[in-house]
């Protein structure tokens, strides 16, 4: 993994760096979702993505499935939250259009932690007796080799998850590519574990966050960030903590439209290919 200087790109160029077939890590709807970049991916359209939802997927996952951009989803869940089931995800599983790797939240986090440490696997409690072990042959059960008194202590081990790329949106970056994420430290985990991290931000500031100890504590160093791009309202219609709330109307409109493939196509024609909110 080369530790080059972080590039500063425009939004479309940043999105173009995600190749077809990429294993891409995406944050949940309560963290920073790079929705403007996701719409750019849909306009291309990108193909055959393996999405790793960290740990659950929402609107961006459903949109990418609707656009035909997804081959496989690895997630603890895909849901539209208070708006109910994710319509295109649900339809794609019914038709067999996408492959599903069901998981549980801490298993995805543990797999990323293994990648972060450069080790092959991470053990995790629980899961034994769950059908997840039947549908995830890559998850194994071993006997804890350090168990006391020769007792049997079966424990699950999970392979490291090393995404090709992480894509998210944050409030701000500095011109050195340091990205401030505050308490949203799953973004830190994702950036550490991935070969590349592409980040959109509301603004790029002409300072160095690492010189301020208060900001530095919530900052991903540019060391892990491949490229940044400015995107105003880049998380819309998802909330961006500290900046703007979720656009609940736009989310509800999406869920309603995306119940059918035709409804989704009409929604995409308007929101993805045409109208960009100010």
């Amino acid at each position: 993994m080369p530790a080059q200087t972080t590039e500063i790109l425009d939004l479309e160029t940043l999105a173009s760096r995600i190749p077809n077939g990429a294993r891409i890590a995406l944050p949940p709807d309560y963290s920073g979702c790079a929705m403007a970049a996701v719409r750019a991916l849909m306009r291309r359209p990108v193909r055959d993505l393996h999405i790793i939802a960290v740990p659950a997927g929402g609107m961006q996952v459903d949109m990418l499935i609707g656009a035909g951009s997804v081959a496989r989803v690895e997630a603890a869940a895909v849901t539209m939250g208070e708006n109910g089931l994710a319509p295109r995800f649900t339809a794609a599983l019914k038709s067999g259009e996408i492959e599903m790797w069901d998981a549980t939240c801490p298993a995805i986090q543990a797999g990323l932690q293994a990648a972060e440490k450069g080790i092959p696997f991470m053990p995790l409690r629980g899961i034994i007796g769950s059908d997840l072990l039947r549908v995830r042959p890559d998850w194994k059960v071993i006997d804890n080799p350090l168990a006391e008194d020769g007792r049997r202590d079966p424990i699950v081990i999970l392979p490291a998850i090393t995404p090709d790329v992480t894509l998210f949106h944050a409030l701000k970056a500095d011109r050195y590519g340091n990205v401030w994420i505050g308490v949203r430290r799953e973004l830190m985990l994702m950036a550490h574990a991935s070969r590349q991290a592409l980040v959109t931000v509301e603004q790029i500031e002409d300072v160095n966050f690492l010189e301020d100890p208060v900001l530095a504590a919530g900052t991903i160093p540019g060391l892990y960030i491949t490229a940044i791009a400015e995107a105003k309202n880049g998380a819309w219609p998802i909330e961006l903590s500290g900046a703007y709330p979720a656009d609940r109307t736009a989310q509800a409109d999406y869920v309603k439209a995306a119940r059918t493939a035709d409804g989704f196509a009409q929604w995409a024609a308007e929101v993805v290919h045409d109208r960009v909110p100010a």
Partner: peptide, 15 residues
């Protein structure tokens, strides 16, 4: 993964 009805997923329950 085909299902008669698909729910969102296991979330953190398995742990």
């Amino acid at each position: 993964p085909r299902a008669e009805a698909r729910f969102p997923g296991s979330f953190g329950s398995s742990y």
